[in-house]
Amino acid sequence: MWNRSYLLTSQLVLLPTLIIVVYFLWGFTIYTGFLSFTDSKFLPNHNWVGLKQYYLLWSNARWLTAYGNLFIFGGLYLLICVLLGGLLAVLMDQEVLFENLFRTVYLYPMSLSLVVTGLSWQWLLNPTLGLQKILNDFGFHGFALDWIVSSQYSIYAVVLAAVWHGSGLIMILFLAGLRAVDEDIWKSINVEGVPAWKAYLWIILPQLRPILLAAILLLTFNVVRSFDLVVAMTSGGPGFSSDVPAKYIYDYFFSRSNIARGAAAAVCTVLTVLFIISPYLYFELRKRND
């Protein structure tokens, strides 16, 4: 009896959240999907036009650039953040002097908003104001760092700023994991005389898989909503060379008054991310349940 009323209360308390999630998340997601099959322009309408918006979307040069950048940005950001964060964590695990100081320094970027990050890096990378000018003034005349003004490399400038912002967090996650490794394992490693780098690579790091999963999930969210950093740093430019899907969708919804095309782009983005991330999640979570 006690158990039943307890269960009932908890269900009642959760109900409003459930309604809100169903209405705002699933309701609006489905509605967006529906709008992508209409010819909605300035305001949503219900004139069915089939796959026309998808055809127009995939023949639009700006979308193709933005979609490609999702992979360049996402791939490099995930890879470099994880590698760099992991390396920093291992180095930090060697009982370095002033560990607290280093930890704070590496984690500091995380406390800045992406808008501040974007603006600072915009200035640092600007060839007429930033690093290039300083080094040239010091006499290194051959030095060129003009990624941000080149339409070929601008997306890599965004990756640089994002990695600077994100790798500290990954370091902390891995460091927490390393500190939780059982003392006995280290003892047996020492007894066996295994070199430290081999021990990390083959024994310690494989135990951190759950942490890797958490890190990848956190970073993936940042990739999908990579809007503020791009807007603050390059506003998608030069031209639209550093455009990303989130910015494309926003522009078509609001400033271009083309809701249906924005909705089609949103559907394609969500499906892409689902296709990439679900098999990995499925694989990881099933293994743990076994």
């Binding site: 322009k41 040069a61 700006r62 430019g237 031209g239 639209f240 060379s241 271009r256 083309n258």
Partner: peptide, 19 residues
């Protein structure tokens, strides 16, 4: 002009200028 027209004009000019 309406947002569709000026959107295309700005997009093409900016793409041309920066590539």
């Amino acid at each position: 002009r309406e947002s569709g027209f000026k959107g295309v004009l700005k997009e093409v000019v900016s793409q041309f200028w920066n590539s």
